[in-house]
Simulated assay, not measured.
Amino acid sequence: MSDIRYTAATQLEHLHSRYTGTINADTEKYEWITHQHRDTSASIVGHPPLHSYLAVADGETKARVKFELTERMLQPCGPPPHKSDD
């Protein structure tokens, strides 16, 4: 019986390859915040009651709110910061 045992490292590697939003020790603050904003926007667009609530609260149409949220998913926190070469 060939019982393959996964170590913690291989399980974590599989998790990162399967789910792009999972973070690791090398994740920077900008990446983490970007993932949080994208997840929140996607959740609002994907749940009609939240989507309707936001449209009413902003005084906009549902289509306009959906458009703005999907546009904001491209760069939710602005352009990435410049990396210094040390």
Rank of each mutant, 00 (worst) to 15 (best):
residue 14 H to I: 12
residue 14 H to V: 13
residue 15 L to A: 15
residue 15 L to E: 12
residue 15 L to F: 12
residue 15 L to D: 13
residue 16 H to G: 09
residue 16 H to W: 02
residue 16 H to M: 11
residue 16 H to Y: 12
residue 17 S to C: 08
residue 17 S to Y: 04
residue 17 S to G: 15
residue 17 S to K: 14
residue 18 R to K: 15
residue 18 R to Y: 13
residue 19 Y to S: 15
residue 19 Y to M: 15
residue 19 Y to L: 15
residue 20 T to H: 05
residue 20 T to G: 09
residue 20 T to M: 00
residue 21 G to F: 01
residue 22 T to E: 11
residue 22 T to Y: 11
residue 23 I to H: 09
residue 23 I to N: 10
residue 23 I to A: 12
residue 24 N to L: 07
residue 24 N to K: 09
residue 24 N to F: 04
residue 25 A to D: 14
residue 25 A to Y: 12
residue 25 A to E: 15
residue 25 A to F: 13
residue 25 A to W: 12
residue 26 D to N: 12
residue 26 D to T: 09
residue 26 D to E: 14
residue 26 D to R: 11
residue 26 D to S: 14
residue 28 E to T: 06
residue 28 E to P: 03
residue 29 K to M: 13
residue 29 K to P: 05
residue 29 K to Q: 13
residue 29 K to W: 10
residue 29 K to H: 13
residue 30 Y to S: 05
residue 30 Y to F: 15
residue 30 Y to L: 08
residue 30 Y to D: 13
residue 30 Y to P: 00
residue 31 E to C: 06
residue 31 E to Y: 07
residue 31 E to D: 15
residue 31 E to W: 04
residue 31 E to A: 10
residue 31 E to S: 04
residue 31 E to K: 03
residue 32 W to I: 12
residue 32 W to D: 11
residue 32 W to A: 03
residue 32 W to Y: 12
residue 32 W to T: 04
residue 32 W to S: 09
residue 33 I to H: 07
residue 33 I to Y: 03
residue 33 I to C: 01
residue 33 I to W: 02
residue 33 I to F: 08
residue 34 T to K: 08
residue 35 H to E: 00
residue 35 H to L: 05
residue 36 Q to N: 02
residue 36 Q to L: 00
residue 36 Q to F: 06
residue 37 H to A: 00
residue 37 H to W: 04
residue 37 H to Y: 02
residue 37 H to P: 01
residue 38 R to M: 03
residue 38 R to T: 08
residue 38 R to H: 06
residue 38 R to W: 00
residue 38 R to L: 09
residue 39 D to Q: 13
residue 39 D to H: 14
residue 39 D to M: 14
residue 40 T to R: 04
residue 40 T to P: 05
residue 40 T to G: 05
residue 40 T to I: 04
residue 40 T to M: 09
residue 41 S to C: 14
residue 41 S to Y: 10
residue 41 S to K: 08
residue 42 A to L: 11
residue 42 A to N: 02
residue 43 S to I: 04
residue 43 S to R: 11
residue 43 S to G: 11
residue 43 S to K: 11
residue 43 S to Q: 11
residue 44 I to A: 03
residue 45 V to W: 00
residue 46 G to T: 05
residue 46 G to S: 09
residue 46 G to Y: 05
residue 46 G to A: 10
residue 46 G to H: 03
residue 47 H to N: 15
residue 47 H to L: 15
residue 48 P to I: 01
residue 48 P to N: 10
residue 48 P to T: 06
residue 49 P to Q: 03
residue 50 L to R: 07
residue 50 L to S: 01
residue 51 H to R: 04
residue 51 H to W: 02
residue 51 H to V: 07
residue 51 H to S: 06
residue 52 S to A: 15
residue 52 S to T: 11
residue 52 S to Q: 07
residue 52 S to C: 05
residue 53 Y to V: 06
residue 53 Y to H: 10
residue 54 L to F: 01
residue 54 L to K: 00
residue 54 L to P: 01
residue 54 L to W: 08
